[in-house]
Design a protein around this nucleic acid. Structure first.
Lengths: 113, 113
DNA sequence: TGAACATATGAACAATTGTTCATATGTTCT
DNA sequence: AGAACATATGAACAATTGTTCATATGTTCA
């Protein structure tokens, strides 16, 4: 590891002071981690069009019900989606508009170049 | 797996038609995956203040040089950061303004509630 | 109440990931 | 050219993750 040049010491302190807290950094990484899976992106993308029940998602994604439910649980515990029951079926939707915005930003970035 | 109700079939087709391509969905997940690590979020957060050399990052993050370089390589191959050499040192910075925007959106979300 | 349906959940396994250690590459200065 | 410095990279390992299979929970309807 190299010695720190005198003129760098100040920048390091400055940057350290401006960094979000460890707790926020941790939370931020956790949120992105949840977005960082193709199956979950597909679910979020579908839900960005409106609420949908589990069986529809299974059909849409062509995945078995267990795999879909597991990912819905991950998304829900991260508060990216919410659910409501209607009879036997459970409908999922994006938790708030913010989620759609994050998703859209990421998709836009991926669509470039 | 349940049968699809007739009124759902239409929604499924509609949603499927509006979904980004598999390639875009894949890319989107990959980008978020790179954002989904605390060390990398700390690096990106630091670089959002301006360019920084590797040894400064090591000092700032209190991590060894190898670990930092490995993560810089991940960030660079995902085109989230770029580098420039100045003598013996290599300075890293965010690849474009878009990256800062995505980071900021995630941090803002984490800061809520 | 019991059968059929819709969804959730636990265990297990392969695959992926982040860090460390050791070493290689590339630059500067004498 | 050789020494010192700054960074990159390969191998190895523990830890985490996504899916599958089997089964549990909760709801509706006869």
């Amino acid at each position: 590891m190299a010695d720190i040049h005198p003129e760098h010491a100040h920048i390091i302190e400055q940057t350290k002071a401006n960094m979000p807290s460890e707790e926020i950094l941790e939370k931020t990484a956790e949120v992105f981690k949840v977005f960082g899976d193709k199956t979950r992106i597909r679910i979020l993308s579908a839900l960005s069009e409106g609420e949908m029940c589990v069986c529809c998602l299974c059909d849409l994604l062509e995945m078995n019900q267990s795999a879909v439910s597991h990912q819905l649980a991950v998304l829900k515990s991260a508060r990216l989606i919410k659910s409501r029951r209607e009879g036997k079926q459970i409908y999922y939707s994006l938790d708030d508009a913010h989620i759609g915005a994050i998703l859209y930003t990421g998709i836009s970035h991926a669509e470039e170049d």
